[in-house]
Design a protein around this nucleic acid. Structure first.
Lengths: 333, 333
DNA sequence: GTGAAAGCGCTAACAA
DNA sequence: TTGTTAGCGCTTTCAC
């Protein structure tokens, strides 16, 4: 059942079997073949715990997500996974489970149990205590979607992204534009929403344009939230000629709300999102697209390199580009 | 850095420290407090590898998904995760990565490395070889969304679900109904799509209704696929009065395609899906709702119980119920 | 209520 | 190219 059985059956030593199993070049090819064959016959299953204990390496990395059912997280997770798989690493998922979840001692403890060699954090801003606690495990860490104080991060420059969207809108002639963002999930302490909002407000200000308070809404980073925000925006009172949403899911909701309010998109109101969500492609949503999967791969590669002893160098901002489709156009004269 | 340090600092033995850390009742409360305090001060981080080696339990379960970016899988994964967390178990994610992925030797090997105590398979049908290989690890397994030969499964009864949808449609007076399903991802070998299609055809037949071949379409289980299928369906030629989709994402696509084709929903064509997707709720999609998160929790509980020595008893079918909203109605006279 | 000692299954020097 | 010998950090009898 263990490496020992194979040793006795083949008449070799444990060490040779161990080396053969790992295909080390110091072992005779014939020996390797023999060992592998016997291992198969015996139905040998290696113990990662034992290997981990002996080497100090678990060949696994942890991925921490605030919640799991968001487009961005799922895509990024897929990217991280793909790269880990390539490298033969397993992925341990730590889901904070939203505001109701147990983002507390017991939970953080579990990510420290030396079960993983590194940590990839998705869009998380850690406070001092959390940082200190995670620091204990002393393994490489990186955040996707950050930025995070003291940690490397990969992701788009949210301020630049907001600028791109505002450029597009203003270039079309819009001056009255609303913002639909949110704090993702209350208590999850995510920085991205704020960066995008500030980027938006600043970009508008840079053009001498102000933003009404009633036009900065919370869309909870969800489709339903977008619908609600849109309903509020188009329910009466002064109406913006364009809406900038901090995510495509919310933008999709705003478009729906506009239609329900009897408004034509983009004739009566333009809508732009951020992400590059598949649904947006189908329905013709204009957006500032990013590639979370690629960001996930980049993060995984970086952290894996660090596990292998490479120095942690800062990463360039991930690319984002404007994709003009059918939901934006010039405002009505 | 290990249990030993704590032992020397406190002047206790390794065994007592180990017991204290786990809060065993044979240890004096004062000792427990002291040990915990010292452990904190020292920044002690337990090694799950060592514990796993010693006990043979990893306190982790593996979840295998065909692809990760599908509504159902994400929700079910969340449910499994929640339950594991409650039990103090970690979750190791094995993503087969779709048809292009490496659903092969190397990969299966990795889930066998005794890194987990049990396996939860999402909608996977394993062939003989695969089953035999996984059997090697001898740990409890369960599939969500199955069914799978020789394995326990939790999920709705797909045939019943199809029946519910057909009942609803036929009850409204429809006789010409199309089916949009798919095989999810080619090569992923998933049973659900076929069960739903057969359930549909059979339910129709039970009412003396036939189904045209051209009305059984592949929607790839995605929104875009649904749009394509709808476009084909409404692009000319005989048109069904209702469309039954094997998932809400496809149904959403079909609704969009119908609108694009200038058809009114449900006046010109009714559309019903399966799932209970959040988007469907917002746009008023009629559906046969299920609760994948609950299924995930159930599966996790079952497999955990089995890890703890409980016998593996078959589970009842998960509930599914009709949610009538705005996309279905009687056919035009 | 606590300690001593023997492993869990593997890897890694160091020898041969 | 292969074998020997120590551990890796914890849990767990069995004593005390």
């Amino acid at each position: 059942m263990g490496i020992q059985e194979i040793a006795t059956v083949t008449g070799l030593s444990k060490s040779t079997v161990s080396r053969a199993l790992r295909g080390m070049s110091t072992v005779a090819d014939s020996t390797i073949d023999q060992v592998r064959r016997v291992a198969d016959e015996l139905g040998y299953v290696p113990s990662s715990a034992a290997a981990g204990l002996a080497t100090g390496r678990q060949r696994a990395v942890g991925v921490v997500v605030p919640v799991i059912d968001r487009w961005f997280y799922v895509k990024a997770l897929g990217g991280v996974d793909a790269e880990l798989r390539r490298a033969g690493y397993d992925l341990v998922l730590y889901n904070l489970g939203g505001p109701g979840g147990d983002r507390d001692r017991a939970f953080r403890r579990s990510m420290l149990r030396h079960r993983v060699d590194a940590l990839v954090l998705l869009s998380l801003v850690l406070d001092e205590t959390e940082r200190a606690e995670l620091e204990l495990a002393r393994h490489p860490m990186i955040v996707i979607g950050g930025p995070a104080a003291g940690l490397r991060n990969v992701g788009v420059d949210d301020v630049v992204v907001a600028g791109i969207a505002v450029d597009h809108l203003c270039g079309l002639g819009h001056r009255d534009v609303a913002y639909v963002g949110g704090q993702d999930e209350a208590g999850m302490n995510v920085a991205v929403p704020w960066l995008r909002r500030d980027g938006f407000v600043d970009a508008m200000a840079a053009r001498g344009l102000g933003v009404r308070d009633e036009w900065v809404l919370d869309g909870r980073f969800s489709f339903a939230g977008g619908v609600d925000a849109g309903a509020a925006l188009f329910g009466g009172g002064p109406r913006p000629t364009a809406v900038f949403c901090a995510s495509d899911e919310m933008a999709l909701g705003v478009v729906l709300a506009a239609r329900r309010a009897g408004l034509a998109v983009p004739e009566d109101v333009s809508v732009i999102g951020i992400d590059g969500h598949e649904y947006g492609e189908v329905v013709g949503l204009t957006t500032v697209a990013q590639d979370p999967e690629a960001q996930g791969r980049t993060a995984a590669r970086a952290v894996l390199a660090e596990v292998d002893g490479a120095a942690a160098r800062a990463l360039p901002a991930a690319p984002a580009h404007l994709v003009v489709r059918a939901t934006t156009g010039p405002p009505r004269a």
